[in-house]
Design a protein around this nucleic acid. Structure first.
Lengths: 226, 226
DNA sequence: GTCAACAATATTGTAGACGATAAACCGGCC
DNA sequence: GGCCGGTTTATCGTCTACAATATTGTTGAC
């Protein structure tokens, strides 16, 4: 019999609501009525309530007294801020990864890189983006810096809605591939300084691409967004 | 008549408990029984409950299902991690501060620096530490990077218990003064790169001092800690 | 037709009771 | 004396009900 610790309602509430926000089933600005969510997920209002409190602390939800909670809307300027903070922290993590990576871990990173290359050549930008996330995730694990990891995860969650807006910037995917290659090379060489620098530049480039994408959106805005 | 928005119980609960932890009235490892806290602060258990949830998300409290919450204990290794993360983020903030500081703001920074110098010459290490905090705080305000500011504040809160352990390291205060001077100079000169670098080095030095203090603690542990 | 006062409604904030769980306790057995 | 089983207790997790508040809708005067 597997030891399946029965999770408490509050925990599942937190995860379900969080997941719904990350999956964009709940959109920014949307009201989060406690009773509604309770029924939707088959949970009690108390559970939803504390979940919302935690999510607010995490920055995914905004709530005002007696007026309820909404999914926090993050505009372009803030998305850039978040990316900058991520850059600072992931740069730290990359430094740690360069210090601690084992040969096997390096091989794994290089494997991911190769698969990214294959997706790039196949023109599969979405698949590339997934591998991108996997690479960053793996670097965090190698770094073993739990404080940085926690913060980065939180920042990444806040930016889910903006994560795909850069991949269509012309030439971006090619440069992205190159940036990742430099990061992995530095980690493989245990060059801490270079790894930190490469990661910082990489995410700065992402921020720049996001600015461009946002600027292009402003000239021909997306009609889907009512 | 001033518009004193009557705060809700949950909000006051959050602030009171948080304050109590930061003031070290509630010590690491100490149990946080909901009913006790409710009576102590004259609030309902529900309010305390959500306050604890938020504080857990913030990293100040640790709680396990059905076993209650405790003030999270942060050991030396984690304190160093937290300082490193702070360094990365405050470095970013210093870069922004260098970019955006007005002449008046620069004067204010220099004023704080002068007062630090005075305290240093008077041998008033505690006063110096206060001005230290004020300087960092002021830099954050000048930077105007709210994402970084939020994270830094959270990290600083987690390290309150370790913040004074470095000031007795021999020669530390003199070097600290010099490090701050370099930061302010770089900001005054609007040299972003230099400001970021100076802040990174400063906090790395603090981390180093903390390691030393911890090592010295291990050779002759403090008898006060039962 | 517009605006202000007021009533009705929806939703959150708070209180208290009850069931669920884990730790502490107790008694019997070896 | 130490260990295992059940029992008790403290505390948390959840539910229900009610009070407080903001928002919406309605009425009436001008």
């Amino acid at each position: 019999m597997p030891v399946v610790e029965k999770p408490t309602e509050t925990q599942t509430a937190y995860q379900r609501v969080r997941q719904a926000i990350l999956a964009e089933e709940l959109l920014p600005g949307q009201r989060l009525v406690e009773k509604e969510l309770a029924e939707r997920f088959g949970l009690g209002r108390a559970a939803i309530r504390t979940a919302l409190a935690r999510l607010e602390q995490e920055g995914l939800v905004k709530s005002e007294p007696f007026r309820g909670a909404t999914v926090r809307a993050i505009d372009e300027a803030e998305a850039v801020e978040i990316l900058e903070a991520r850059a600072a922290l992931e740069s730290l993590a990359a430094r740690y990864a360069a210090r601690k990576a084992t040969p096997e871990q390096v091989r794994h990173l290089e494997d991911i890189l190769q698969r990214m290359q294959a997706r790039y050549e196949a023109g599969d930008l979405l698949g590339m983006s997934e591998l991108n996330s996997e690479l960053h995730q793996r670097l965090l694990e190698i770094a073993g810096h739990r404080t940085a990891a926690r913060l980065i995860e939180s920042l990444r969650a806040q930016n889910v809605r903006h994560q795909f807006r850069t991949i269509l910037v012309p030439g971006r995917s090619r440069r992205s591939l190159e940036e990742h290659r430099r990061i992995v090379q530095a980690v493989a060489a245990h060059d801490e300084e270079k790894a930190a620098q490469a990661m910082l530049e990489h995410l700065s480039q992402v921020a720049e691409a996001l600015r461009q994408a946002a600027a292009s959106d402003r000239s021909k805005p997306n009609p889907e967004e009512a």
